[in-house]
Amino acid sequence: MMMPPMLGVLEAALYADDLEAARGFYGDLLGLTELTAREGRHIFFRCETTVVLVFRPEVTRKPLEPDAVLPVPSHGADGPGHLCFSVPMDALDDWVNRLSHAGVAIESDFFWPNGARSIYVRDPAGNSIEFASPKLWEIPE
């Protein structure tokens, strides 16, 4: 049987108890466009062709109501998650400056053996957020 096609990652989910802090980090600091929010439940942001979903885990873990309009199964995670933003190599210093100026600690800033660079910080919920040059996952020819 042939493998059906896949186009990439459409959305990625993170979990946070404080959605207003998430709004400040992803919307105000990182400049992602807020798409929609439901108070006390979630806030969604656009990042180019991907959507970053931020949910309150204790709310999304609740079982699906029998009369739910959208039949999305319950989900959630314990502990910090991880998300990596693809950033042009020549913009990584600008991100370090922006994040540092906002009081966000840079946990790690290093070059991979293939020459890619990654910068790691924590969002207000403790999720590990990486900013990396696209070369990180380039496949050698």
Results as ranks from 00 to 15, higher is better:
Leu7Arg: 12
Trp95Ile: 10
Glu65Tyr: 11
Ser128Asn: 14
Ser100His: 12
Leu83Glu: 07
Val104Ala: 05
Tyr26Val: 03
Val52Met: 10
Ser118Gly: 10
Gly126Tyr: 11
Ala21Tyr: 04
Ser74Leu: 11
Glu20His: 04
Ser100Ala: 14
Ser86Pro: 00
Ser128Asp: 08
Leu83Tyr: 04
Asp28Gly: 08
Ser128Thr: 12
Glu107Phe: 06
Pro134Val: 07
Val51Ile: 12
Trp95Ser: 03
Ala116Ser: 13
His42Ala: 11
Tyr26Thr: 03
Phe45Glu: 01
Met6Trp: 15
Trp137Phe: 09
Ile43Phe: 04
Pro66Asn: 05
Arg46Met: 12
Met1Gln: 11
Phe131Val: 00
Ile129Arg: 01
Ala102Ser: 13
Leu10Glu: 15
Asp123Tyr: 05
Leu99Cys: 07
Ile43Asp: 02
Cys47Thr: 07
Leu7His: 15
Leu14Ile: 00
Gly31Tyr: 06
Pro88Ile: 09
Ala13Trp: 11
Pro88Arg: 04
Ser133Met: 10
Lys62Glu: 13
Leu30Val: 05
Cys84Trp: 06
Gly81Val: 04
Pro4Arg: 01
Val59Ala: 01
Glu34Tyr: 09
Trp112Thr: 08
Pro88Lys: 10
Ala22Met: 07
Pro113Val: 01
Tyr120Trp: 02
Leu30Ser: 00
Pro63Lys: 07
Pro4Phe: 10
Ala116His: 03
Leu53Glu: 13
Pro124Val: 01
Met6Val: 15
Val104Asn: 09
Gly8Lys: 05
Thr36Phe: 15
Arg122Val: 08
Arg122Tyr: 00
Arg46Glu: 13
Ala22Lys: 04
Trp137Cys: 10
Leu32Phe: 07
Asp109Leu: 05
Pro73Trp: 03
Gly24Phe: 04
Glu65Arg: 12
Leu30Glu: 05
Ala13Cys: 13
Arg38Thr: 14
Ser118Arg: 04
Ala125Phe: 06
His75Asp: 12
Gly8Asp: 09
Val72Glu: 11
Pro66Cys: 05
Ile106Cys: 06
Asp93Lys: 01
Glu138Asn: 11
Pro124Met: 01
Cys84Ser: 05
Arg98Ile: 10
Pro5Gln: 12
Gly27Met: 00
Glu107Pro: 06
Arg61Ser: 09
Trp137Asp: 12
Ala68Gln: 00
Ser86Ile: 11
Met1Glu: 12
Ser118Pro: 01
Pro5Trp: 03
Val9Ala: 12
Arg56Cys: 05
Ala22Asp: 02
Thr50Gln: 13
Ile129Thr: 10
Ile119Leu: 14
Arg38Glu: 15
Thr50Ser: 09
Ala12Cys: 14
Phe25Gly: 04
Ser74Glu: 09
